[in-house]
Every structure is written in structure tokens, then in C-alpha cells.
Amino acid sequence: MQRAIERRGIPTVSVTVARDVTEHAKPPRAVFVPFMMGHHFGVPFHRELQRRIVREALGRLAEAEQSGEIRDIPVTWAQARREGIAIERGMGLRDERRPE
């Protein structure tokens, strides 16, 4: 899919949570995040993290020099979850008494 778009002269970048799958599929540009499947842009209500993943991925559009390169974004799922829980507490969305 990504390769088909790139072949039309449109630069592409994907966000992947499965580095091994991406290494097999060899899209032109990718960033890897060690997040849960289905959570490529982080955790609910964590706007800053979601924006950061998008921006870092889009940064590759101008910066990447080699097709097939997968760039790590230095984030961890544990920290994303911790920050997400704190944000939800702040929003009153999470019951303080319920341990996570």
C-alpha cells in the first residue's frame, strides 16, 4: 500500500508497532513505537504524546535518506500508560480508588 503511493511520487511514512512485520514489508519510511497493537499513537486523551508520534513520523518525510529505514521513537509503553493514567485522573475519568 505504502509502496504503491510512494511510486506515484508522493512521499510516505508509516507508524508501526511491529518492527518485524515492517522489516519484511519494506515500506519506504517507517517509525517504530514499542506500543500495544491498535495504539500506534499512544494512549487515550494524551494529546501531547499523540502529537509527538505524528510529528516525529512526519519529520521523516524530509529527513529520511534511505528507503526501508525504520527509525525508533524513544518512548516506552510503560511511561505512556503512566502518563495516560495521570491525565485521566486529572480529567476525572479514572476512579482513584481502583488500582491499575
Binding site: 503511493i5 508522493i10 508509516s14 507508524v15
Partner: peptide, 18 residues
């Protein structure tokens, strides 16, 4: 999809393969 993306005037594309 690639044809539709081009027809929509895209100059760059972000993808998220789940």
C-alpha cells in the same frame, strides 16, 4: 487507494498499519 490519494491532491501520506 494510491490512485484515490493522488486524485485527492495529497503531497505526503501518513500511514498506520494496525
Amino acid at each position: 487507494i494510491a490512485a484515490a490519494v493522488a486524485a485527492d491532491g495529497a503531497e505526503a501520506a501518513l500511514l498506520a498499519p494496525a
